[in-house]
Each structure stands twice: as C-alpha cells, then as structure tokens.
C-alpha cells in the first residue's frame, strides 16, 4: 500500500493534536508520522501526516479530518508537485579507525556530523524519507546506538 502525505492547517488550540491523533487511532488508520508546527497564519499550525492505504482509504481519512471543527483545510500533497523533508539524528559508536569512512559516507549524503565525543558521534541528515532510509541502511554496520526521526514535513511547489 502506498504511503501518502496529507497536509492540513489546524487551529492552534489546546487538544487539537489529540483530536487528530485520536481520529486516526479510533478509526484504525495506519499512520507513520505526524509533524506539527506553527504555520504562516497566526493562530494556526500546520500538520503533515504520512499515512498508508489505498486511494479510497486515504480519501476517507481526508473526509474524516475535514469534519474536525479545528481542521481548516486538507490537501493530499501528491495531487500537485511537492517537496518533502525529514530530519534525522543518528548516534553511532565511534571506532576511531572508521571515522574517515563514516565522514565520507556522510559527505556523500550531504549530512553533517554535529557532535563528536570520545566514544560516539551524532550525524544529522535532512532528506526525503527514501534517502534517509538508504543512509540508515549504509550506516547500519557501523553500529547505531540511537536514532530519532521527525517524520516528513512537506510543501507543494509553486503558488
């Protein structure tokens, strides 16, 4: 089943995240991530949900979201050209002999090493989910100690 991004604006009121996440959980919708943050409109936040399901189910999710009074507008990101990015932090076991190797990998993926300690290093990577997944696969053998991902945020291109 396809993974789709649903973008929507919500009133920035207490409990709004609970309303949205509650809707997804009680209807048994499969979601991979939710991102929330302030939008360009005062008093409004924007949420991006990555959800999986067939076309009918994704449309059903949008219809159910529109019914929430605090949800202002809902778009399926893929209906127009869009860009999406996810921030990921990976803490790796630091084996001094492998440092250069990791650095090369990181450079290739245009990610940055943002912390180096005596035994660990933290790599930051920003990209779409596929790229981040690919990086994770490559870095796996070096020993991932900790991983955190924000989930994808997205924006349609053009006006």
């Amino acid at each position: 089943m396809d993974r789709k991004l649903i973008g929507f604006t919500v009133n920035d009121t207490p409990g709004v995240l609970q309303r949205v996440s509650g809707l997804f959980s009680r209807r048994g919708y499969n979601i991979e991530s939710i991102t929330v943050g302030p939008s360009e409109r005062e008093g409004c936040s924007r949420m991006i949900v990555a959800a999986s399901g067939d076309d009918a189910l994704i449309r059903q999710m949008c219809s159910q979201l529109r019914k929430l009074i605090d949800v202002l507008d809902v778009v399926l990101m893929h209906e127009r050209p869009y860009v999406s990015r996810e921030l990921m932090l990976v803490k790796l076991r630091m084996d001094p002999s492998k440092r250069a190797e990791i650095q090369t990998l990181a450079d290739t993926f245009r990610c940055s090493v943002i912390d180096i300690g005596p035994e660990t290093m933290i790599v930051q990577i920003v990209g779409d989910t596929d790229k981040n997944d690919a990086f994770l696969q490559l870095i796996q053998p070096y020993g991932i100690l900790e991983l955190t991902r924000t989930g994808e945020t997205a924006m349609n291109r053009g006006m």
């Binding site: 207490p14 409990g15 609970q18 309303r19 509650g22 809707l23 009680r26 929430l68 009074i69 605090d70």
Partner: peptide, 12 residues
C-alpha cells in the same frame, strides 16, 4: 479528553 471521539466538537 474522554468524550472527543463521541462528540461533534467540544469546548473547555
């Protein structure tokens, strides 16, 4: 919180 899934909308 308890009634969010069973109300059309709610206010505090």
């Amino acid at each position: 919180g308890m009634t969010q899934p069973i109300t059309k909308h709610s206010y505090f």
